[in-house]
Measured scan of single mutants.
Amino acid sequence: DVEPGKFYKGVVTRIEKYGAFINLNEQVRGLLRPRDMISLRAENLNVGDEIIVQAIDVRPEKREIDFKYIP
């Protein structure tokens, strides 16, 4: 289970104008929005990159997770 405030290692699987999709594993995926990329620009991300993200909002009923990148 993903808990708000905890840090996780994930892999960038898709990049859109509104953010990057980060997979923690095959069943868990969330969104890293540009406003939550402190000191990281979306254009510096590539599909396949491994990054550490913090879960900031977890909505299990919608199967949605928002992440924040903190260097």
Rank of each mutant, 00 (worst) to 15 (best):
V53G: 00
S39V: 10
N44G: 13
E50A: 10
R33M: 07
I52D: 01
G10T: 01
K62M: 12
A42C: 13
V2A: 04
V28P: 02
P4R: 12
N23H: 12
A20N: 01
V11R: 09
G48D: 01
G5P: 02
Q54Y: 11
G30Q: 03
F67A: 03
R41P: 10
I15L: 09
D36A: 05
L24D: 01
L31S: 03
R29K: 10
P34W: 15
G19Y: 10
L40G: 07
D49F: 07
V12Y: 00
P71I: 09
A20H: 03
I15A: 01
E50F: 15
V47P: 05
D66Y: 15
N23S: 15
G48Y: 02
A42T: 15
P34G: 12
E61Y: 04
A55F: 08
I51Q: 00
D1A: 14
E16R: 06
E43G: 11
M37G: 07
E16A: 13
D36E: 05
N46Q: 15
Y8I: 02
E3G: 04
E26N: 13
L40N: 07
I56N: 02
Y8K: 00
E50M: 14
E3P: 05
T13N: 02
K9Y: 10
R35A: 12
Y18A: 07
I65K: 03
I15S: 01
I52M: 10
I15W: 02
E16V: 13
S39W: 14
R29C: 13
I15Q: 01
F67Y: 04
G10R: 00
V11H: 05
L24N: 00
K68S: 09
I15E: 00
G10A: 11
G30A: 05
F21Q: 04
G48F: 02
P71L: 08
E26F: 14
V58P: 03
E64S: 07
D49I: 05
K17A: 12
R41W: 12
K17V: 11
I22R: 00
G5V: 03
R41M: 12
A20Y: 12
A55W: 06
V11L: 08
F7K: 05
I65G: 04
G5Q: 03
D49T: 05
K62H: 08
V47W: 03
V53W: 02
E43N: 11
R35V: 11
V53K: 00
Y69R: 03
K68F: 08
F21T: 08
F21V: 13
N46T: 13
L40V: 09
A55C: 14
R14I: 05
M37T: 06
A55H: 02
I38L: 09
D1L: 14
N23Q: 14
I15M: 06
I15D: 01
V28H: 07
G19V: 09
I51P: 00
Y8R: 01
R35C: 11
I56F: 07
I38Q: 12
F21E: 05
N44S: 14
N23L: 10
K62N: 08
E26C: 12
L32E: 03
I15C: 05
G30F: 06
N25I: 08
L24Q: 00
R63W: 09
N44E: 15
R14A: 11
R33C: 10
E3F: 12
P34K: 15
G10P: 00
M37K: 03
E43T: 10
L32F: 04
G19H: 08
Y69L: 08
R14V: 06
F7A: 03
E26G: 13
V58T: 06
N23V: 11
A55T: 05
P34E: 12
N46I: 09
Q54R: 04
A20L: 12
I38W: 03
R41V: 12
P60R: 09
G10K: 00
S39D: 14
F67M: 04
I52Y: 10
Y18V: 09
M37N: 07
Y69N: 03
D66S: 10
D66K: 11
G19L: 09
D36I: 08
K6H: 10
M37L: 08
R33L: 09
A55I: 15
R63G: 15
L24I: 14
L32P: 03
N25Y: 08
K17Y: 12
K9T: 09
V47I: 13
D57N: 15
L31V: 07
I51T: 00
V47M: 04
G10C: 07
A42H: 13
V53F: 05
G5E: 03
